[in-house]
Design a protein around this nucleic acid. Structure first.
Lengths: 247, 247
DNA sequence: CGTCCCCTTGAATGAAGTCAATACGCGTGG
DNA sequence: CCACGCGTATTGACTTCATTCAAGGGGACG
């Protein structure tokens, strides 16, 4: 199934029918583009034309400030959608770039609207996706505002681990983490040096092990405790189970 | 017109017909509730039932962390909507509280869905509202991650001034700012003491004057420059003018 | 073999936080 | 009318967490 990850993710919200899954699969048979690491999908100021759906690989939203600093605003993993309805806006207020090699389906406005019109459960599920994405953005706000360096890094790692698990990309207590320390820094508002020191310390205290872009979390609960991580904002409790699928 | 502020705000996106305006007015004749300062509209963990529409007064989303710290995640001013479609979720991942005395219309799911079904231009405008709210959240992320204390406070003041102007709540270079220094701190991730020192300095350099909860900005462009404020994320350029209203 | 990232480490610096005391303004009740 | 109390604002001295600066090491790749 082509967009396996998206379907798997949305299934955390509601039970999808076979027809629902089929239409989601078809969505990503739109135009598929491939990006190399650091390649931009779209730049601040550009006119958005498509909803990007990440089939494979990681990417990020980011913003360059006048003072030369860069903030990563959010991370995309397989199964993530960029911005439903983004084509309403005349221009992007931020940029999006691939982090790893990435395969991205570009969903056109018309393809999207066709789905919305005919598949109410999918529509609901996409709404849920949107609401969760905003909740993640809020949690990052809270993190940057109130957590210290160590807590921020731990929180990011917890979030990514859980999100990856939702789309079937973890293996036991292990997951990919294709971010450089400087990218972790850009996401957490820390410098590379600070990230490095935090990671050292997390390794020393056996909270994580991280080599070759593979993260291992021996005790997720312990990491969550350090991070003050509460997964409620990811809304994985089958909120939409009342909309039962008709198989 | 009852929800004057919302209509005025949405008019920055598209030209609304009289019928559009009428249906928006009716929306807030739903149940109107009044809250006192610090009173909670809804708490983390509660089940969301309504879309809150702020008719009058200020409020905020916030999150309490385990370590006792509190982060204000976003601010609501008159004309702001809480979360379109929030009732999809089983429980709130954050709380919402009034800052000043506030009048809030509670829009029911059915009232909302009725509007969506019949008023495509209003639907589009509400989508725009949602996208702008997320863009603001992203900008706060960037602020907390990359701006220093002075820049963060200036940026918040710029944003609020521009948002208030959009709903007709500024007068010349003056606007209400009913936030205590500690609330500014909770929004910007700073301590009260730091906020106080920044404000002192901004006053001394004539960038602002702020007394009795009234903010005066003698030279907005200068303040924007200090804050590295770029209003593009508020998307006020009539992005939806292609959907002309039929009067 | 050299180059380019990325990671690591130490020492010095600095921005913001902490602690603590004081001042101000305003409404309440004696 | 004044005293009191409470929330808010202000100020100074000290501390600390993270940044900055600078240098060195390792691995991948042309």
């Amino acid at each position: 199934m082509a967009d396996f990850h998206l379907i798997r993710k949305l299934s955390h919200f509601t039970r999808l029918s076979e027809a629902d899954k089929r239409v989601l699969s078809e969505l990503c048979e739109s135009r598929v583009r491939v990006f190399r690491p650091r390649e931009n999908l779209i730049l601040e100021g550009d006119r958005p034309q498509y909803i990007n759906l990440f089939l494979d690989g990681w990417a990020c939203r980011y913003k360059d400030l006048e003072n030369g600093k860069r903030q990563i605003l959010s991370l995309f993993i397989p199964g993530d959608l960029c911005d439903v309805n983004i084509f309403i806006l005349k221009q992007m207020d931020h940029s999006i770039a691939a982090i790893t090699p990435a395969r991205v389906a570009e969903i056109s406005r018309s393809a999207f609207e066709a789905v919305i019109a005919d598949y109410p459960r999918v529509t609901q599920a996409l709404w849920w996706e949107t609401l969760v994405a905003v909740a993640i953005q809020r949690e990052w706000t809270a993190s940057l505002g109130q957590r210290d360096a160590r807590e921020r890094v731990c929180h990011l790692l917890c979030e990514l681990f859980v999100r990856l698990r939702c789309v079937g990309l973890t293996a036991g207590n292990t997951c990919p983490l294709p971010l450089s320390q400087s990218e972790i820094g850009e996401a957490t508002g820390l410098t590379t040096v600070s990230v490095n020191r935090v990671l050292q310390e997390l390794r020393r205290s056996n909270l994580i092990s991280l080599k070759g872009r593979i993260l291992t979390v021996p005790d997720l609960e312990k990491l969550k405790a350090v991070a003050m991580f509460n997964a409620n904002y990811l809304h994985l409790e089958r909120d939409g189970d009342n909309l039962a699928a008709n198989f």
